[in-house]
Design a protein around this nucleic acid. Structure first.
Lengths: 217, 217
DNA sequence: CAAAATTGTGACAACTGTGTCATTTTTGTT
DNA sequence: AACAAAAATGACACAGTTGTCACAATTTTG
């Protein structure tokens, strides 16, 4: 938890701090991410960081929660009850996801790292929870969709979950690798050449979801 | 490349060295893996390591090559030309894979880390090559199997590759998470309770491959 | 058996990192 | 303006890392 001091900070200063820290933790894994680099980039004293957060882990946990909240806002706009078909829902979830990647690339990259690349022992316990949660959510989904007929009942739930989880990760990786350059450009320039990439991305997602549908329906 | 000195080492000593180093690099990512810990575990002097290898990266590269060769030996025994159906071939590949995980758990875990969890900048370039290679191999496969009718031609090759790659990673992760304890036990005790787990693993792989088949055939 | 080649050693330098804390600076309040 | 509270500072202690190198021990060779 951040201290009062941090929360009382001027909005712009606090935001700059978050962005810079987020960038460091998005570019490096937990062990390699360096508070030294953050304070040099921000031109602030070492002590300040420890007046805002008790330690490195505390900062990391805050950034994690911050990013998750940001992501949730994007995802929440996709409402399952508004879809008759599970698969178009799932599709839209990823297409909404790309908005998140464009608008909050740092959060996106940070969460991507947590989900699939982080391997530090210091944060291992907090990542396990995340994965278990994801699995639980997917399990509820799959069971529901089995009753709706979106997923055939002969498929084992656990295996279907594994399958969907793996696909989700795959789509995530797709964005991070294939479109990371485009996203970087989008950050730098005002009018990026990203619109066409989005269309390409949507096509890819649709085809991948179609394959998932073939497999499970 | 290791030095002559290392290659001239007594077989047992060299092997112990490899195993210990492998364990350190399997348990930690490149940055966190510590030569200090290795030499303490081995009870040898710091200087020795640098008489065997020029530096940390050199050691890592050797372990990578070593592990890849070990893996290749296991995989090579599965010969595509002996299978009329691609999917049973693909299935067997993973079932043979589990043998590798049991017999060479350190190599397996090390390679798993390289493939999916490593994110150190020092070794990034060597990992990219690995992934690109995997993609190339899968692309050739998919194109072949399209002609054989094992994969339908309407599916985009790149997307099919992405799909298969993701599944492969998923199956790999399955072993690492679900069976890692069992593998550890296998290392320690003489007669492990692992045989039943293997059967369960085989069933899971078969079901996952079946799903893949549904999706792509 | 002695000399030469090989292998082992561990203290050391040079970094980089985290977290602390007494002190100074800034801000807010009376 | 004077005082109090809050925030910023950066030198410091301590720990951990890699790679070096002069020297010691061991093995091989002539």
């Amino acid at each position: 938890m951040p201290t009062e001091t941090f929360l009382n900070l001027a909005d712009e200063k606090r935001q700059t701090f978050i962005e810079t820290a987020l960038k460091e933790f998005a570019d490096n894994n937990y062990d390699s991410a360096s508070i030294n680099k953050i304070i040099k980039e921000l031109n602030i004293a070492r002590g300040s960081v420890y007046q805002y957060f008790t330690d490195k882990l505390d900062l990391w946990l805050y950034l994690k929660e911050y990013s998750e909240i940001q992501k949730l806002r994007h995802i929440q706009s996709v409402d399952r009850s508004k879809y008759t078909d599970f698969w178009t829902y799932y599709e839209d979830l990823f297409i909404k996801g790309i908005n998140f990647d464009i608008e909050k690339p740092l959060c996106s990259r940070f969460l991507y790292r947590i989900g699939y690349k982080e391997s530090s022992k210091d944060v291992a316990e907090y990542i396990d929870n995340w994965k278990v949660t994801a699995k639980e959510i997917f399990t509820v989904w799959v069971d529901n969709e089995k009753n709706n007929g979106s997923i055939k009942k002969t498929v084992d739930t656990e295996i279907a979950v594994q399958f969907i989880l793996s696909m989700s990760s795959s789509i995530g990786e797709l964005v991070q690798t294939k479109y990371s350059n485009a996203i970087e450009n989008n950050l730098a320039s005002e009018k990026p050449l990203f619109t066409e990439s989005i269309e390409e991305y949507k096509r890819t997602v649709k085809e991948l979801v179609q394959l998932l549908k073939n497999a499970l329906k």
